[in-house]
């Protein structure tokens, strides 16, 4: 049985239970809003997963989302730049933040936890200081990607599918992807084999920053405003979806299809809690239990699994 088969079965079970239990679950509108949210979860989880795969982590995904959003808003509302240029600035900022994380981790040999935790506070503080909590208005045309659909499916979902496909190709078909996985599997062995592991860690962090900034831009497009608090809740989601999706916490394992299914399962559970009117005071307890369960399954899979540990599927 492949790693993703278990996720497939869980997703199917949840989908069927909700379809039977709820009168509105199968409506086109429900599918639209759920798939749009799944798209964001996918991007946020990928931002975490690409760091996990090289044996690190990125606690600053939300912070990058915060400041990328503020920069986007500043560029469009205050500096009157073209939205295309503003998006480029926001994405460029994401890459630069990721590069800074990678530089500190590899050059100064500081643990990724410490570097990205500090970066998270730094970026969140800058967000508050620069914006003063004030959201920035975006032009109506900017909401096209975030609010519209193509062939009945939200544009953001198409974008996240395209990103997933590129990530899958990167890790399964390219030398760079193999080097990233090798770095996370055993950094010492990879270094001895001639792989520039420091460069791999920097690349993973740059990619992570880019994906976090992309999620922020798309979220702003959905909201129709650049809201400084964007990203405040991403940290737990990024870990939860990545881990549920089969990304190994100890590095070297990533699965694009697993992350898609993980995001779907995460979304179905959140939606299910609302649909089935679960006690909202316990909602975070459900989520916490889910993450713990996912980590436990991941550990058991490592202990007893017979699959190739280098690949998610």
């Amino acid at each position: 049985m492949k790693r993703t088969d278990g996720l497939c079965l869980s997703f199917t079970a949840l989908f069927c239970v909700l379809a039977i239990a709820s009168t509105t679950f199968l409506s086109g509108y429900t599918m639209f809003v759920l798939s749009r949210q799944v798209a964001f979860y996918v991007l946020i989880a990928l931002a975490q997963a690409v760091c996990l795969v090289v044996g690190g982590m990125n606690l600053s995904v939300g912070g990058i989302g915060n400041l990328a959003t503020v920069l986007l808003g500043l560029c469009i509302e205050r500096w009157q730049l073209s939205p295309w240029l503003a998006v480029a600035v926001a994405l460029g900022f994401g890459c630069a933040s990721g590069f800074a994380n990678g530089w500190f981790i590899t050059r100064l040999r500081i643990d990724s936890f410490v570097v990205t935790l500090s970066m998270m506070f730094l970026l969140m503080g800058l967000r508050s200081g620069i914006s003063g909590g004030q959201p920035y208005a975006l032009p109506e045309s900017f909401t096209f990607v975030g609010q519209k659909a193509f062939l009945g499916i939200p544009c953001v979902f198409w974008i996240s599918l395209a990103v997933l496909a590129l990530i899958a190709i990167l890790f399964e078909r390219t030398v760079l992807g193999r080097h990233l996985i090798a770095t996370g599997t055993n950094a010492d062995a990879a270094r001895l084999a001639g792989i520039p592991t420091d460069r791999m860690i920097v690349i993973a962090n740059v990619l992570s920053g880019f994906l976090a900034a992309l999620a922020a831009v798309l979220w702003a497009s959905q909201l129709g405003s650049a809201t400084p608090e964007t990203g405040d809740t991403w940290l737990i989601v990024s870990f939860a979806v990545a881990i549920i999706g089969g990304t190994g916490l100890s590095g070297g394992v990533i699965s694009a299809s697993g992350i898609l299914l993980g995001a779907g399962i995460f979304m179905l559970i959140k939606h299910g809690l609302v649909e089935l009117k679960a006690n909202p005071y316990f909602a975070n307890a459900f989520l916490g239990a889910l993450i713990l369960l996912a980590v436990a399954i991941d550990r058991l899979r490592d202990l007893f699994g017979r699959t190739d540990p280098r690949r998610g599927d």
């Binding site: 509108y29 949210q37 959140k270 609302v274």
Partner: peptide, 11 residues
Amino acid sequence: NVNVEALSTQG
């Protein structure tokens, strides 16, 4: 957004 969109689907 996530919660209210879910409620919205219920009519």
